[in-house]
């Protein structure tokens, strides 16, 4: 009888899976992309890196404290579609006015000018029109490092 119950559960699980499966969404096939961003030899410790395709959707990666990134197109860490990309790196730090702690304070506080923006990687690399960086994503998992001079 245990085997019969097990078989029933198995059949049930297969059915559930087949119900969940098959929700294709017309999304392109993606390849994992990760790498390291350095500026003048040192790891960039914050910011984001954006891969702009010729056609389609951007892939974005957040740069962690060690300078590593992993690209996301749709879901966390899913990579980018194979192809050629122009790349921008936006890494900056703002030292500004103290933040409001809740909605009420926020209403009363008014706009504060951010004191200053410090670019960790020069601003030129953060703009599509001026960034010289490019990358090519292949269909296998990619490791693409950027060393900004």
């Amino acid at each position: 009888m245990n085997r019969r119950i097990a078989a029933t559960i198995e059949a049930f699980a297969v059915l559930c899976l087949s119900v969940c499966y098959g929700c294709g969404s017309g999304r392109p096939n993606l390849a994992l992309v990760s790498g390291k961003v350095t500026y003048q030899g040192k790891p960039v410790t914050e910011g984001k890196i954006v891969f702009h395709p010729q056609k389609g959707r951007q892939a974005i990666g957040v740069i962690d404290a060690d300078g590593n990134y992993r690209l996301t197109t749709f879901d966390n860490g899913d990579g980018a579609a194979p192809g050629k990309y122009r790349v921008t790196i936006q890494a900056m730090r703002a030292s500004g006015a103290p933040r409001a702690k809740n909605i009420l304070d926020e209403v009363k506080s008014g706009i504060k000018e951010a004191a200053s923006v410090e670019w960790i990687v020069p601003e030129k690399y953060s703009r599509l029109e001026t960034s010289p960086l490019t990358a090519e994503v292949e269909s296998e998992p990619n490791n693409i490092d950027f060393n900004v001079p």
Partner: peptide, 26 residues
């Protein structure tokens, strides 16, 4: 340069539902 738009307005620069965290105050 002095516009602060983020409370009520969005641009189409980043794709729909991009997860671009962490966002800084600027």
């Amino acid at each position: 340069y002095r516009w602060s738009l983020g409370r009520g307005f969005r641009s189409t620069y980043y794709a729909i539902n991009s997860n671009i965290l962490p966002m800084a105050d600027n």
